[in-house]
Design a protein around this nucleic acid. Structure first.
Lengths: 158, 158
DNA sequence: TTCTAAATGAAAAACTTTTTCAATACGGAA
DNA sequence: TTCCGTATTGAAAAAGTTTTTCATTTAGAA
């Protein structure tokens, strides 16, 4: 059990939730994940630690963790919801809106911005998720070619 | 048809998509929406402009628009996906992770940051979505009281 | 106007998420 | 340690969402 997981476990306990075998398995799997996981993916990974783990429990545990701000929902490309740990020191991603290729960005200085937000809204900021959308080099090329071909046809037709 | 919608329509045309009545209805509804809409909500609103509009067409149109970077997926609290126009000049939101209350933030200066990202990754940045998660004042209080009550019980039990 | 490919709606299929309920297991008290 | 009460669990079913299929319609170019 690593430090990350101890913290998560402590937070659950601090709010009166029991620390069960299925939940430990889920925490462990989340702590080890390098990317947001859908509930189904999370179940698969957590079953390494608790082979009996049911999908319903994954949903219920994620719900609790989201309420406590331990986990954050993220949009996944394949049509279902993903969850990632809301730990500090995370990285951000740029996602290509056409082919869904992902590039990681290191270094993110939103600290000052977030302090302003906290001061202005009265919220305690527990985390943030910055999704940057764009077009990767390949898709830029593909889209341009598409548009170009169309234009050529238009001219040829005149 | 407002300017926003003209731009969207032009973008679809530029990539060889037909501009049909159902699609115009969808664009119109999106352009008028002040918040991210789920496909079902979008259908309801777009039916004002095309009473026959089918939900399948909403999904298909959103898929095209997402590929072209005209629309961005957003996580909604009620378990389905939301879509918002990827227009510049948008605002950001802080969402309470416990009660899902939303506060809007005006002023967001990520411009410089995004330029760095573009330069480093080779991506054309078409937009970004910053989700800030936190606890609203009410939920901070509620959670603290919960934890406090628990502690009291613990002490009383000693 | 005519033509053709793209786009459409309806129905069905496939998935995801939530609810229900009897059985189980955590963690406090003895 | 063992016992007890209640939170938690898995399985099944229900509800909701997204995707696929297919015959029909329609936009837009000739």
């Amino acid at each position: 059990m690593n430090a990350n997981m101890e913290t998560l476990a402590a937070q659950l306990r601090a709010h009166g939730h029991k620390l069960t075998r299925p939940r430990r398995a889920i925490l462990q799997a989340l702590a080890e994940a390098a990317k947001p996981l859908s509930p189904a993916e999370l179940q698969t990974r957590a079953r390494v630690f608790d082979a009996e783990l049911g999908l319903v429990t994954v949903y219920r545990t994620l719900e609790i963790m989201e309420e406590l701000g331990l986990v954050r929902p993220v949009h996944l490309a394949d049509g279902c919801h993903g969850y990632a740990l809301a730990t500090p020191g995370h990285t951000h991603h740029v996602v290509c809106q056409r082919c869904h290729a992902v590039v990681e960005i290191v270094g993110c200085d939103l600290g000052v911005f977030l302090e302003h937000v906290a001061a202005r809204t009265g919220y305690t900021i527990t985390g943030h998720w910055l999704e940057i959308a764009g077009l990767c080099a390949d898709c830029q090329r593909a889209l341009q070619e598409e548009a170009y071909t169309r234009e050529e046809n238009d001219h040829a037709a005149e």
